[in-house]
Design a protein around this nucleic acid. Structure first.
Length: 232
DNA sequence: GCGACAG
DNA sequence: ATCTTGTCGC
């Protein structure tokens, strides 16, 4: 794993925001992901155990969505939770988990925002830029932006805007359930991001990749029945 | 000053 | 994020 844009993580909130402003200029919103060519998609999530941040990555084959690899890493928490600065709290753990990953995916889906962020550099975009790898932001709630609720049917979506700029999509991944906030992470355009998130989602609100990564991050292990689909 | 605020 | 089972509602 090579960091294209390495930078210090042990910084003050002010320095963190300054770093985001610089890295935000490196985000590529143009698409570099042909869905037909995607073979592996990875879900990334972070959980907390006492004062340790535990990052989990689960790579699934696409479009079957069968788990193909996983990795876990635990690092001491060294930054508080501050809206807009999540990457400085979870980023180090994520990078540690990616360091151990032995099956690199074509694209990462994060449980966080991409460019739908005050400085257009949410955790998904931040990781995408430092790794210079395709990434998508897929959060369960809004950080910034305005929107009108999308129709109740699965697949429906409305734009998430900030002033005149479209910063993401509010996507209904499951009929009747609360929508997800999808945004460009890095090297994936919004249309492709929305399509990929929908194609990674089955009967639940969250993409299978995110669900598995969440289970792994919070419980430390994947339920055997989740892996039953003959995988690792 | 007041309210909002990914995980 | 985390503390936590059953329960109210569509």
């Amino acid at each position: 794993m090579r960091l294209v844009f390495p930078h210090p993580w042990n910084v003050s909130p002010e320095e963190a925001a300054a770093i985001q402003q610089e890295l935000a200029q490196q985000v590529v919103r143009q698409n570099a992901v042909a869905i037909e060519a995607v073979r592996y998609v990875a879900g990334v999530d972070v959980g907390f155990v006492g004062d340790m941040a535990r990052a989990a990555v689960v790579v699934c084959e696409f479009p079957s969505l069968r788990p193909a690899a996983q990795s876990l890493a635990q690092v001491p928490v060294s930054f508080p939770y501050i809206p807009g600065l999540l990457a400085f709290r979870e980023g180090p753990a994520v990078l540690a988990a990616l360091e151990k990953l032995d099956l690199w995916p074509d694209v990462f889906i994060f449980d966080a925002q991409g460019i739908a962020h005050p400085r257009r550099l949410g955790l998904a975009s931040h990781m995408g830029v430092v790794l210079d790898w395709p990434s998508i932001g897929c959060a369960k709630s809004r950080l910034v932006g305005q929107f009108t609720a999308p129709p109740a049917e699965r697949g429906a979506w409305t734009p998430l805007t900030d002033g005149q700029e479209c910063i993401g999509a509010v996507v209904r991944t499951r009929a009747g359930a609360e929508p997800l906030f999808v945004s460009i992470g890095h090297r994936v355009n919004l249309e492709t991001a929305v399509e990929l998130v929908l194609r990674c989602t089955r009967q639940y609100r969250l993409p299978e990749t995110s669900r598995l990564a969440h289970m792994l991050a919070s419980r430390g292990t994947l339920p055997s029945d989740a892996l039953q689909e003959r995988l690792f």
